[in-house]
Amino acid sequence: MKTIDEMLHLALLSPDEHQQISTWIAQAESPDEILKMPPLLWRAVERASAVMGIDEDLMRPPALDGGDMVCS
């Protein structure tokens, strides 16, 4: 839901799309149920995801160097 909220904040989803998508996700009992979301709503999520570069983030190999991570 955090990503959907960010999409609304960035004006990538309309308030109505956000409400409908959020309601669908909240009522879904499984990931398979989420996948049954109406095509119009899926297209809205896909457009917003493309603008945010979500697919590219998911396809990027993980940084194995740990960067500035501090383990204790």
Results as ranks from 00 to 15, higher is better:
56 E>K: 13
57 D>N: 14
60 R>Q: 14
33 E>A: 13
20 Q>I: 03
21 I>T: 02
35 L>K: 07
37 M>T: 06
29 E>H: 06
56 E>T: 15
31 P>Q: 05
47 R>M: 11
47 R>E: 15
68 D>G: 07
17 E>N: 06
43 R>G: 04
4 I>Q: 13
66 G>R: 02
56 E>W: 08
53 G>T: 14
32 D>Q: 08
38 P>W: 00
45 V>D: 09
69 M>E: 14
40 L>E: 13
24 W>A: 14
70 V>K: 10
3 T>N: 05
5 D>C: 08
41 L>S: 01
35 L>V: 03
18 H>P: 10
43 R>A: 11
52 M>L: 15
51 V>G: 09
63 A>S: 14
66 G>I: 03
60 R>C: 06
47 R>N: 15
32 D>N: 06
69 M>Q: 13
72 S>W: 03
16 D>I: 11
1 M>A: 05
2 K>L: 10
71 C>R: 06
65 D>W: 01
49 S>N: 04
59 M>R: 10
35 L>F: 09
28 A>S: 15
39 P>T: 05
61 P>D: 09
15 P>V: 14
55 D>T: 09
61 P>L: 05
53 G>H: 10
5 D>W: 03
34 I>V: 13
59 M>K: 15
7 M>W: 00
50 A>F: 00
70 V>S: 12
19 Q>K: 05
26 A>L: 03
52 M>T: 08
54 I>R: 02
15 P>M: 05
22 S>C: 03
10 L>I: 03
22 S>T: 06
54 I>G: 07
42 W>T: 09
19 Q>C: 03
40 L>N: 07
24 W>H: 15
66 G>P: 03
38 P>Q: 11
24 W>Q: 13
1 M>W: 00
11 A>L: 02
44 A>P: 05
11 A>R: 13
13 L>R: 01
2 K>G: 02
15 P>W: 05
30 S>C: 01
9 H>R: 09
35 L>A: 10
9 H>M: 03
29 E>G: 11
26 A>I: 09
21 I>Q: 07
19 Q>D: 15
16 D>P: 00
70 V>L: 11
63 A>G: 15
21 I>G: 06
35 L>C: 12
53 G>V: 14
71 C>T: 13
52 M>H: 11
10 L>M: 12
52 M>V: 02
6 E>N: 05
58 L>M: 14
47 R>I: 02
8 L>C: 07
31 P>V: 08
64 L>K: 13
63 A>V: 07
5 D>K: 01
46 E>S: 10
29 E>T: 01
2 K>I: 15
72 S>N: 10
